[in-house]
Amino acid sequence: MNFKRIQLIFLAIFIAMDVFLFLAYNRNSVGDSTAAGSNNILEEMRKDQITYSKPTTQKYEGYYFSGNNGDALRQAAPNLQQQSIRFSGDELVSEFKKPLKITSGSAKQTLDKIVANPGLVAEGKHYSYSKQLSSSSEIIYVQRVEQKPVYSHFCQIRFDLDSQHRVVGYSQNYLEGVKILKEAAKTISDERALTWLYQYNEIPNGAKVTWVHLAYTRLLTARGQYVFLPTWVFAVKINNSSSVILKRVNAYTGEVIKTGENNQTSNANSEIFTLT
């Protein structure tokens, strides 16, 4: 009888010890994994009330390439009809002789036909419609290089809309002489890029990441050529504000590419879009 009692006491002690050990073990392993897992960072972002659609861990391939705004547009300009053309630098500025009426639903269809017509837009086959960059006053087509869009002023067609929602003209930049500078290399995933962006304090609390694209961004200019690299472009909508800011992350290294207009003269990047 006495022995049974001792056994009972021991059992109780050991069960208590097991519970304690288990808790201690669990706490330790949880505390440890914070260093590595990006899931925890995503959770942290949720706590900061940052909303985003579920990022993927898929990696892609991209290139470094160079090109410039040469005179391809100037050469093509005489063949363009039903518009008056002038150049501002390398940019072709066109005004349609007859403004084009479009309805908001059919904007893409109508303009696709115009862009595809070599008599109306030069080199149009290299461009595609970008819903995300377009706004109520401007419809943007971006040039594509190696199957990916280039988000840069140097590679765009911008259709201007007037107050009656008519296309009055467009301005165009065309990147030519595209040369691949290095063989394809794997990019990081958009999940990784998003966590870097957050860790560099580029996403304020309560912000909303509305979309993310893998697109090329101009990094620098060297020997008269623009050099582009693949970037993850995030559209960040800041709380209580209607404007969307594009944040760019180097898709190879995860570095945040600082954008700003104050240092255009240097090699620094001056790509910035503010959409309203």
Binding site: Y64, S66, K179, L181, K182, L219, L220, A222, R223, Q225, V227, L229, Y252, T253
Partner: peptide
């Protein structure tokens, strides 16, 4: 070497 730039001669 991380960022390639256009060379003088190809």
């Amino acid at each position: 070497l991380q960022i390639p730039v256009p060379p003088v001669q190809s």
